[in-house]
Design a protein around this nucleic acid. Structure first.
Lengths: 225, 225
DNA sequence: CGGGCTTCGCAAACACCGTTCGCAATCAAC
DNA sequence: GTTGATTGCGAACGGTGTTTGCGAAGCCCG
């Protein structure tokens, strides 16, 4: 048995006798999440995670098959932060509530958007999230495939939104904006120039705190009936 | 001057006398794109790109500030593959044409979706793309900010779509599906179970080749009027 | 032509990285 | 107590991004 170590959270009975394994796996994941929250995803190296736990890098491989698997565990662990108790009965507000929670979770874990988008995985907690979304949409007449698309879009759009949010405070984003302005005035890009001037006037006026909700609402009502 | 090397494609006059630099930069980018197309993004290391050009890794740093900048150059170079000559006059079909081209480009460069989503940048060609989209939407009454959101969503949703397309043929995706089925029958997830059985019956029946277009059409009509 | 200045190519080195191997230590069960 | 599996981990392998320094090549101008 034990052929090639399946998806990590599958991990069947694992034979064996005593196994504190699950606890250590959770601790490793927590340490990795902590590190990523504080220093970014690049800081999550096997050596540094191990050091945070007061042990050596090689020890981690008893609990985690590879670094990528650890990243999957991190992603799934954040899905445990959802709270599904509030239910209104209408699918749209309930989905928007999920989206708002997703946004908050991603704000807490700035490394999450990149992982969600580049390696979509459904661990135990991710499955709970999917179950909740499907349950909210249970009475909706859309075909199941479209409900799945809506779920994927909810994640992707939220990730994109938070990513953009984070990028605008970044230093390189300032240079991006400067470059855009430069290109616009340099000609050949009249639409961009127009957009920049109009953006300069209406800037930061409207309450853009819930621009996320209205955007996501439009996307969801567009995809689902 | 020359403080800290600005966004790479800005690169002002650079003083200097002779400079074949631009050509070399394009050649380096092309070599990196080639490598990524054939062996994936992880294969794009400075040493391997340099080897493909018959030179040493250190030489690349004369033309490229860092590996991340090379990745940005790769992303922007793919934006040169768009063709904006076809114009219908209606914004929706024109945007769907852009989306279809984006999908095809990403299919040609399977590493692109991850880059587009994790490090959104607008190089010279990316700016042309944005200009085109804004031009298509010039007569549309939506506020400029929403047009930008539509642009970002077009990219993100396309990336997500191609990513999913690629992932389903992957080996680990099979195990994901198996895990999902296991979870569903193991109980506590009735909605997922229902979805799996319904998906099993309607599988591969409908022509899903243009499911991308209909999905993107719904998203765009949802976001814009 | 000859110097001077700039640009270029690149070997070597540094500090990491993910991962594997092998062995010592630990623990469970009989 | 002995046996057998499970765990911890130092050391090593091959790779990575990036910096430094120096020699070679090119260009301009006198």
């Amino acid at each position: 048995m034990a052929e090639e170590q399946p998806v990590i959270w599958l991990r069947p009975e694992q034979a064996g006798v005593g196994r504190p394994a699950e606890r250590s796996r959770a601790e490793i994941t927590a340490a990795a999440v902590d590190l990523a929250d504080r220093e970014g995803l690049d800081a999550v190296s096997m050596r540094r995670v191990a050091a945070a736990l007061g042990t050596g890098a090689a020890s981690l491989y008893r609990y985690v098959a590879t670094r990528d698997d650890l990243l999957d565990l991190m992603t799934d662990s954040t899905a445990a932060e959802y709270d599904f108790t509030a239910r209104s009965g209408d699918w749209l507000p309930d989905l928007l509530d999920v989206a708002a929670q997703a946004r908050d979770i991603m704000r807490r874990h700035p490394w999450l958007p990149a992982l969600v988008v580049t390696r979509p995985t459904l661990g135990p907690h991710g499955v709970d999230l999917l179950e909740h979304v499907l349950d909210v949409l249970a009475d909706h007449p859309a075909p199941p495939s479209r409900k799945l698309e809506a779920f994927a879009l909810l994640n992707a759009a939220t990730a994109q939104f938070v990513q953009h949010e984070l990028a605008t405070t970044d230093a390189s984003a300032q240079r991006q904006a400067a470059y855009l302005a430069h290109v616009a005035v340099a000609g050949h890009h009249p639409r961009i120039a127009a957009l920049l001037t109009s953006a300069a006037t209406t800037q930061t006026v409207d309450g853009n705190e819930d621009s996320f909700t209205t955007l996501l609402g439009r996307v969801l009502t567009g995809v689902l009936g």
